[in-house]
Design a binder for these strands. Sequence first.
DNA 1: TCTGGGGTCCTAGGACCC
DNA 2: TCTGGGGTCCTAGGACCC
Length: 396
Amino acid sequence: VFVSREATILHADLDAFFASVEQRDDPRLRGRPVIVGPGVVLASSYEAKAHGVRSGMGAGKARRLCPEAVVVPARWEAYSEASRAVSEVFADTAPVVEKASIDEAFLDVRGLERISGTPEQIAARLRRDVRERVGLPITVGVATTRLIAKIASGEAKPDGLLVIPAGGELDFLHPLPVGRVWGVGPSTAGKLNDRGIATVGDAARLDEAVLVSILGRAAGRRLHAIAHNRHHGRVRTRRGRRSFGSQSALGRSSRSREELEAVAGGLADRVTRRMRAAGRAGRTVVLRLRFSDYSRATRSHTLPRPTAQTTAILTALRALLAAAMPMIEARGITLLGITVTNLEGERGALQLELPVDGPGRSHALDEAVDEVRERFGTDAMTRGGSRHASFQHGFE
DNA sequence: TCTGGGGTCCTAGGACCC
DNA sequence: TCTGGGGTCCTAGGACCC
């Protein structure tokens, strides 16, 4: 699923997923503000969102914003079960489905016109089927690319359907605030706003070079392409994972070195267990820290060869922790985490034959990479060196 | 008046190499 | 011989997403 000449890509996104499941299963919660927690808001119903409650917000703040909200603990089994049930509806709707997360998926309905009707009709039926078979509200965006379909579903929420016809992309995109674009978060939007760029249309009026100078190479090019509807989602070839991580929030009380070592031991154990279960090994151990002033730091060490052994990983983690102790004592630690990355066998390579050698080679490689990006409709390709470039996600 | 746990990707600088 | 152009790998930090 990536690009189509017609609007046949559906993005289906369950509305306030966890909270909707709670309302479905407990009639007393229907019509009331519901927050799924505890501690941090994992999801909130639209009644709670109306009061300004947002995912990721601390429970205390959420309660202040919406004192009448009912806070319920997360029931993960119920959510996976609901997600599975919705996936069945997806599978009955389209031959090509890409599940993007627990509550959303992309569907390609190309070529189904004679059997199932227009994409709009298919989308409407999908919404009805999910409602009838699973009992949950779902919003669908329809467009020629994933990215536009995703933005469209975001605009149509909750419980809506929005079709952006082929050729209508720019009319749809240009009035939108830049922050609506997937991948443009608060920081990027802030940089743009500071320069008077509020909408996607504002961005479209700028040269790519200007956007690159504001946002950096990758983000600038991406936003420029999107603003001119020249962005074609990534090629996804079974994206392999690229890291394993685990972290633990420690609260605000101070921790002794011994306590931290114990936490580190638990983290290393958890991560390596999962790595061994997955049959993966990694070379780089990253220690993640967060401090009481909410600043962060990372310290990393790369081993000579990949491993998934608890002792090897833990030894490296302990050494990083020891070196970081002065910083920890100065700033007060509130979170300790580990990430193991640089995994073995994670990316394939594509060899390019270049027409020139010598000083012009680098430029030729740039052009070749651009051409491949164009042809495959991907921005997942990166320059690797003077003689090669590679696809992320193990392109074969 | 700050938030948990799990991820992905990009950028920049330093050490070192041809 | 010197300088510049073109690399690799590692480390650290930042932004973003669900």
